[in-house]
Design a protein around this nucleic acid. Structure first.
Lengths: 354, 354
DNA sequence: CTGAAAGCGCTTACAG
DNA sequence: CTGAAAGCGCTTACAG
């Protein structure tokens, strides 16, 4: 292994000077710079990040804590990770993925080892024990998501209000008046304080009321299967529904499949608009889903930048909320027969057949 | 931060003794052990992995190099990563995911920094420049996949021969005699040396010949879209096909969707059997796909264990090939009218309509 | 602008 | 079984 000492000797300078040049921490004259750079090139020198970490008390590694047991690591998660990794690399940091539990014990164990300078928390719950762990250990962190009390916590999150406003507004303009929300199971302890479900639902209730729409919220868990089951219940309980908003991306896939199997055409009979989905996932079906596109790339980057600022002693970025934006596909259209009874009659007939 | 020195002082021993106990590198009497453990508990000591790494020349971090630009990071990749991470953790290692290019330059840069003890290579190509980089830098590594020349390289891989044998055998027993393989695009430079396509195809050619079946190989790229397009071509060029084997998991999803849109029922008209898919992906469709289940959990674990053995100076595990196993779903059944012309006639009629 | 030296928190021969 | 001490490859006041 070629060390800084080797470079210094070859260039005829001290190792301190090499370090100053490498880190740009003190000015170096052009001639010594040239000598050092030549020496580095000739020797193929690469700085040892472990030694640097020990001496500087900064590993330049940050962790993304992802509760993989409670949340599938799908395309959306991959987007968050990838954009965060890119943002980190641009600032000379490594990002590592930590699949740790929701309760904070594993996180505490890992953080105590001194491997990382800070943590980006994914899938934040309204009351998240991991936040306490990070505060107690004085570990810099940034939330992608929000706890209920946010006093001074660095965070970025989806703007659920605008996302739902835009989604409902789009459907309304197309003529839809029967718009149902499929949210999560809020009696499940893991998800009763899960921001996306809670915030989507409250935004939907507010927005639907503003539009004078009937408010119908149904639930599903985060599986394809449960999305399909939700549709079976929906067409039974609310046969006049013309559009479905759905929070969970796996359930959304199941919803489309389920409607098809029940004999409903998407979007002719019912439009389906997932509120949070990655384009790669939307492309798995054919025709491709119309979605509100999760702002994963933006949030991954912002969260990481906010964290790195803190690690380096600066103030975190101000909190930012980014809405999911409409990403057109082929699962949303105007209702077949807006505000008439014809559609409902036709669907009822089909149902009787099946 | 509480250091080993703090623990040593409190326990009334030297830091060397604490280290011996912690690493189990030298015997320690029961009484000193008790004193040290008490001190560690009281102080909440946690060993600093960075200092340990610098002193021992072993970071206990291994990287999984995944060429994210050329290969989507889907459910199969997530399975490999998760199982590798678990295997690493069990042996006191961290696994980090490195999304690096296929050409080795990024890998060389990263490896030179001394962050990792070794590398697990994913999506290995038959002629892989990353292998050269790792050899030149004397970095321990294990392949998940195979290069063409394997002289002494630690590797684990899918057993394509047995996978295809089992898949074709299963279909044959159900009565299928027209079994087509959808492989990859071998004229694409990235995939012309991609093991799964190359080896699946050659296994298929051998096995189909053994069964006396007509050999039909078509290609698709790794997208849902292309899987759908392949089906359009298939029913045009080979209307008597009763079963489809398909290598790429995204294309497989598209194949089912495409057949449905073309008016073919799966599995009644055509059975679809992906050769390499993760169950989570198979569960995205409804009904769930019948698949040959990628042995991701087994290979992730074996590859990691093989690597860690080398890192610790032992011989790597002997190469192992693991077949994908049949994982039942609802997209494979017997052909509608085996060996008669009735099925083909009916399909031709449907085709004329569309 | 450059250098000598202490120190980051451990591991590991070496000695006893 | 335990300890004193060197050393891992850097960074960083401090001095000049």
């Amino acid at each position: 292994m070629v060390t800084m000492r080797d470079v210094a000797e070859r260039a005829g300078v001290s190792i301190a000077t090499v370090s100053f040049l490498l880190n740009d921490t003190k000015p170096v004259t052009a001639t010594t710079r040239a000598r050092i750079e030549a020496a580095m090139a000739e020797l193929g020198y690469r700085r040892n990040v472990v030694a640097r970490a020990l001496a500087s008390r900064r590993t330049h590694i940050i962790a993304m804590a992802y509760p993989a047991l409670d949340h599938k690591f799908g395309f959306s998660a991959a987007e968050f990770f990838t954009s965060a990794a890119d943002a980190a690399r641009k600032q000379d940091y490594h990002l590592v993925l930590w699949p740790v539990g929701n309760d904070g014990t594993e996180l505490k164990e890992l953080v105590g080892q001194g491997l990382v300078d800070g943590v980006v928390l994914m899938e934040v719950q309204l009351d998240d024990p991991r936040v306490t762990v990070l505060q107690e250990t004085s570990t810099p962190f940034a939330l992608i998501g929000r706890t209920s009390s946010l006093e001074g916590l660095a965070h970025v999150d989806i703007d659920f209000d605008r996302t739902v406003e835009d989604a409902v507004g789009h459907l309304y303009e197309l003529g839809h008046r029967r718009i149902v929300l499929i949210s999560g199971n809020l009696t499940d302890p893991v998800f009763s304080t899960y921001g996306p479900y809670v915030r989507s639902e409250s935004a939907y209730r507010r927005v639907a009321a503003e539009y004078g729409l009937e408010i119908v919220v149904m639930e599903s868990s985060g599986s394809t299967q449960s999305g399909q089951e939700a549709m079976a219940q929906l067409v039974e309980a609310h046969p006049d529904t013309t559009a479905v908003l759905i929070v969970n991306e796996f359930a959304a896939l199941g919803a489309v499949a389920g409607l098809n199997r029940l004999g409903y055409k998407v979007p002719e009979d019912i439009s389906v608009l997932p509120l949070l989905m990655a384009p790669e996932m939307a492309a798995l079906t054919n025709p491709q889903l119309t979605i509100m596109r999760t702002p994963g790339p933006e949030l991954g980057q912002l969260g990481t930048e906010s964290l790195i600022r803190q690690v380096e002693g600066a103030d975190p970025l101000p909190p930012q909320l980014v809405p999911a934006k409409l990403y057109p596909g082929a699962t949303v259209a105007g209702p077949r027969a807006p505000r008439s009874k014809a559609g409902a009659g036709r669907r009822a007939a089909r149902k009787a057949r099946s």
